[in-house]
């Protein structure tokens, strides 16, 4: 079944769990394996947490928009914020790089998104916001069985 959705919600930590729930519900009709669901949930959790923690600095202000589409078993997800933006995307995506080690951030967010999705692309402009675009084939035969 082909489908699409757009969801908009406040950038508050409680909505990290909400974002995982809606993406699970969205992909469920394609009968994904448990490990595949877990990977997509982790990827969206990392993207939404980045927006809450970094784009909006845990201020509680601002909105996050999730757009998702499912076409012929290919899932595409966009997580958009209108926060501070990322000045150096390459540096931000470097494994274990974090601007907040004192807050027990690991710098693993983008690495996990890249590991668990087929593709991750980041568009960002300082002062305007960020869009993280991810895609993944949901067919069980191409799933990396744990």
């Amino acid at each position: 079944m082909n489908n699409k959705m757009e969801v908009r919600f406040p950038a508050i930590p409680e909505n990290e769990a909400f974002s995982r729930m809606i993406i699970s519900a969205f992909i469920m009709p394609s009968n994904p394996t448990l490990s595949l669901i877990s990977e997509v949930r982790t990827a969206i959790s990392e993207a939404v947490t980045n927006a809450i923690v970094h784009a909006y600095g845990e201020s509680g202000a601002g909105e996050i928009v999730i757009r998702a589409a499912l076409v012929d078993q290919r899932l595409t997800i966009e997580v958009e914020d209108h926060g501070c933006g990322i000045e150096d995307i390459e540096l931000a995506m470097r494994p274990f790089f974090t601007t907040q080690p004192e807050k027990e951030r690991t710098g693993m967010g983008f690495s996990l998104m890249q590991s668990f999705m087929d593709g991750v692309h980041v568009r960002s402009k300082a002062g305007e916001g960020t869009v993280i675009a991810m895609n993944k084939m949901l067919c069980s035969s191409c799933d990396d069985i744990l």
Partner: peptide, 13 residues
């Protein structure tokens, strides 16, 4: 039931 990199940070801490 679920853990992401924030859980990893909590464990390292």
């Amino acid at each position: 039931e679920f853990m992401d990199s924030s859980g990893v940070g909590m464990i390292i801490g």
